[in-house]
Design a protein around this nucleic acid. Structure first.
Length: 889
RNA sequence: GGGCGAUUGGCUCAGUUGGUUAGAGCGCCACAUUCACAUUGUGGAUGUCAUAGGUUCGAGUCCUAUAUCGCCCACCA
């Protein structure tokens, strides 16, 4: 007999087993030609990251897949690592040095980067430690960082290769500029958000007739300082004749021309557009087309610059106010109309983006997109749920060039060098050239900018294996890495959130084709976003965050994982409240106590007995055959659902089987005959196999119990996944038992209705209807008697109408309980009559109310409705009471 | 402007190619406690599956509109 404590205390077992798994290197995967590879690369969390519910969900799903495949015998590799997260990390470290009243410029590039590395060493593994708390079975020895030396080599290699292919180029363009982070951003990094702004109508006087104006409408009046034209639509009859006329730009007194461009919408505003080529992408295009001057009026921090004259040094929004006031004073402001608009916001600091003209590096995307589109269209890569395929294709088919240079310090420095003597010369090279290839001088300096973080993470599925292997010092390790990449690539499944599709998923597919000539992964599982119970995104500023570590602390990791998974329908957002985790905790406790019960009652030999011995003998009774059949049916469904990424279904299968079939029915049935050898073996085997099947979902409790029941047999995670025994699955047996359950429930129901004390044993008669049923029921008599608390159960073939017996129908069988001597029938009848009388009176009263015209007309409709439904309820009750009375007589 | 998702008992949600009587968790009501588990057990109540049409032998599921909510994308100044 093995004894377990009464309550499962997660805290006391989790760390112990995690350490044991790590010590035994159970997470490590290696090349095994005899096994199938199964590989997941983790979406690398930011080094600045701390575990939130999104991570918890994302990594639980990955861990389930990895543990499942590992138990199935695959070489399951979960490649871990972190992302240097350029802007985010730089911001964090800048904040930290700000406490010392320092700016990064005070330290200088080198010193600042030293500080970032120190910070990274100190805090960068926080998220890794937290993933371990979650039970993540990553192959930690492989942990990569996107700024590792080898990884950085891959990034450089890719830049150089793409440059040589003509796919990386430098361009002078309007890009998304974050004035706070002071860097360019890619389009995806500047998501649009709706704003309530104004449309300002400004009057621009004609040069030759200063009393007359043309009126332009703008949402950003401060940019007027940089206007170099006013545009109208060439087909606009109102303004056609004005084309070529000159205006005097107010406040700056620059003479600008009226030009015609088809891009102008006649219907918007006045139909006249101020053109600011240096501050708006459309205006930029017009500026190019019409050969206009480009006047940049802002500093990189969005204060107005010298070109803004008197407004110099004002912030852009302050300048906006002042300019409007100045124009108003001069009578050049026609009106201000409230106007809803949307503007890009920095995805790191939420500052409103300034479209800004600058020189940046870009990747030409269309050629890269082509094979990536094809692969998804042809189904080589599948999205789960499939609807994301459309989102992906839509984006890919309209892909824009990717701005990859960032004006920050933390990141991969662009491998481009310039010669001070040859200003036009661009040297793209993996390492710093010693001298200029043109003039031979050594006055060489590197591009100041770094690369977009995503320009490194798009290589994650293969760069983590050491690609392109140039940094390997020895042939042996190089060979090993190359072989590993061959074995594990393409990886199996990518698990991520929808907002990452463009940033990362799409780009990995492109990089995969470009550099590996193959897809990076076969399946993409997109899970939902974790939200609070009101559907709001969890965020610190809203204060609605549920901290997974707090849940782990309070309820246990398995409770967290199980609860999270069981409510995550494929691809749907998850609405969470703290109470949800009680379900997982309760389930853990149920498993714990069932195991405790089994172990308490287990005799030594059962553990060692081979289940197959019984099967061959075919001498298992109905109950045991039933639970075995149910287990394997469940297992079959479980496999199917895990493989179809239907994790909630999988979790619910485990839950339902264990709680409501194994505990509520099976254990209750065998309880009174628990020392029966076949019950001993079957209950033990089911527990054991269930633990294995539950392990990917609930790794800790399954291991803890496993170790109690199978000491010395190694970790459950290294053991095999239960094998489906098709021959045990028997629908007939299952439906036979279902009939028994219906009978038991029927009797319990009648007992409850008659208010028969639970402890009181009564008699029951089953009129089976035919011989077959009669035989079946007879074999179940002990179970039914026990579970329905019967002193006696008689099975008859033909139904007999007897007095004082309450009957319920189960299929074609009548299940009756004689009430004579059990309840005082006269008393019951009297009670019933009283109830019936009261119901009838109530109904009368309600009907009276409802037939009162005044009431119907004057009372609020909801009150009337309430009265009506009350009446209906009463009528139903009456009907039922009469039914009960009929049965009793 | 385009696209996507959601709408099912009091609450939160499942419901996989259309197929018997639409499920779960939580909550609620009644009963049970020397029994592995009150983080429990037994029983119960609550649904015109958003609305209107259509296809079908059959629709929560498919089609077409409509409404409400949410999300994503987009260069209307």
């Amino acid at each position: 007999m093995i004894e377990l404590p009464k309550v499962y205390i997660a805290k006391e077992v989790e760390d112990k087993w995690y350490k044991d798994w790590e010590d035994k290197k159970l997470f490590s995967a290696k090349i095994d030609p005899a096994a199938k590879p199964f590989c997941i690369v983790i979406p690398p969390p930011n080094v600045t990251g701390i575990l939130h519910m999104g991570h918890a969900l994302n990594n639980t799903i990955q861990d389930i897949l990895i543990r499942y495949h590992r138990m199935k015998g695959d070489q399951a590799l979960w490649m871990p690592g972190t992302d240097h997260a350029g802007i985010a990390t730089q911001n964090v470290v800048e904040k930290s040095i700000a406490k010392e009243k320092l700016k990064r410029q005070d330290l200088g590039r080198e010193k600042f980067l030293e500080r970032v590395w120190v910070w990274k060493e100190q805090y960068g593994s926080t998220i890794i430690r937290q993933l371990k708390k979650l039970g993540a079975s990553c192959d930690w020895e492989r942990t990569r960082f996107t700024m590792d030396e080898a990884y950085s080599g891959a990034v450089k290699e890719v830049f150089v290769r793409l440059y040589e292919k003509g796919l990386v180029y430098q361009g002078h363009r309007i890009i998304n500029w974050c004035p706070r982070c002071q860097t360019a951003l890619a389009d995806e990094e500047a998501p649009h958000q709706d704003l309530q702004g104004n449309l300002y109508y400004l009057k621009y006087p004609f040069k030759n007739d200063p009393d007359k104006f043309i009126v332009v409408a703008t949402t950003r009046p401060e940019t007027m300082l940089g206007d170099t034209a006013v545009a109208i639509n060439p087909k606009d009859s109102r303004y056609k004749k004005l084309i070529g006329k000159e205006l005097v730009l107010p406040l700056v007194n620059r003479v600008i021309k009226i030009i015609a461009d088809p891009m102008v919408d006649k219907k918007f505003g006045t139909g006249c557009v101020k053109v600011t080529p240096a501050h708006d992408p459309n205006d930029y295009a017009m500026g190019k087309a019409h050969n206009l001057e480009f006047v940049n009026v802002m500093y990189p921090d969005a204060r107005m610059n010298e070109a803004a004259g008197d407004y110099k040094d004002m912030d852009r929004f302050e300048a906006r106010e002042v300019i409007i006031e100045d124009l108003r004073e001069k009578g050049l402001l026609e009106k201000i109309v409230p106007h809803a608009l949307s503007a890009g916001h920095c995805y790191r600091c939420h500052t409103i983006i300034e479209p800004y003209l600058s020189k940046q590096w870009f990747v030409k995307m269309a050629p890269l997109a082509e094979p990536a589109i094809k692969a998804v269209k042809e189904g080589k890569i599948k999205f789960y749920p499939a609807r994301w395929k459309k989102v992906y294709l839509n984006w890919m088919e309209n892909i824009q060039d990717w701005c990859i240079s960032r004006q920050i310090w933390w990141g991969h420095r662009i491998p481009v060098y310039y010669c001070k003597n040859c200003p036009e010369k661009i040297i793209v090279s993996l390492s710093a050239p010693e001298k200029c290839p043109d003039c031979g001088k050594t006055d060489i300096y590197q591009d100041e900018d770094v690369l977009d973080t995503w320009f490194s993470s798009w290589l994650w599925p293969f760069a983590t294996f050491g690609w392109p292997f140039t940094s390997h010092t020895s042939q042996v390790t190089r060979h090993k890495s190359e072989e590993e990449l061959k074995y594990f690539y393409p990886t199996s499944t990518l698990v991520t959130a929808p907002e990452i599709i463009f940033f990362w998923v799409a780009r990995m597919i492109m990089a995969g084709f470009e550099f590996m000539k193959d897809i990076p992964f076969k399946d993409v599982y997109i899970h939902g976003t974790v939200r609070d119970i009101e559907g709001k995104k969890m965020s610190k500023s809203l204060g609605n965050v549920i901290d997974p570590l707090e849940i782990i602390n309070e309820y246990g990791t398995d409770a967290l994982r199980f609860s999270l998974i069981s409510i995550t329908a494929q691809g749907q957002d998850v609405f969470l409240s703290k109470e949800r985790f009680e379900q997982g905790r309760n389930f853990c406790n149920k498993i714990w106590n069932a195991a405790r019960f089994v172990l308490m009652n287990l005799e030594g030999e059962a553990i060692k007995t081979d289940l197959c011995v019984f099967f061959q003998k075919e001498d298992l009774d109905l109950t045991n055959r039933w639970i075995l059949s149910r287990f394997y049916s469940t297992l079959k469904e479980l496999n199917k659902n895990i493989e179809a990424y239907r994790f909630n279904e999988a979790a619910n299968l485990l839950y339902h089987f264990f709680w409501h079939e194994f505990c509520d029915w099976y254990l209750e049935m065998i309880k009174h005959d628990i020392k029966n050898p076949q019950n001993q073996v079957v209950m033990f085997k089911i527990l054991e196999k269930f633990l294995r099947a539950a392990h990917p979902f609930m790794p800790f409790i399954s291991e803890e119990i496993w170790q109690k029941i199978s000491p010395g047999s190694g970790s459950i995670m290294a053991g095999p996944w239960p094998h489906i025994q098709e021959q045990i699955i028997d629908r007939k047996i299952e439906s036979k038992m279902e009939i028994a359950f219906l009978i038991i429930t029927g009797i319990r129901n009648m007992r409850s209705e008659m208010e028969i004390a639970p402890a009181l044993e009564i008699k029951a008669v089953i009129y089976a209807g035919n011989k077959l049923n009669a035989e079946l029921i007879s074999s179940l008599i002990p179970h039914i008697k026990k579970l329905a608390r019967l002193s006696d159960l008689v099975v008859e073939e033909k139904f007999q109408h007897l007095k004082s017996q309450l009957t319920t129908l189960v299929g074609d069988m009548h299940v009756s309980i004689p009430l004579e001597g059990v309840v005082d029938i006269d008393k019951e009848l009297a009670k019933l009559d009283e109830k019936i009388k009261k119901a009838e009176n109530d109904i009368k009263a309600k009907k009276n109310t409802l037939s009162n015209k005044n009431f119907i007309e004057r009372a609020p409709t909801e009150i009337v409705e309430k009265e009506r439904s009350k009446l209906k309820e009463l009528e139903d009750t009456l009907h039922k009471l009469k039914g009960v009375k009929d049965g009793l007589q």
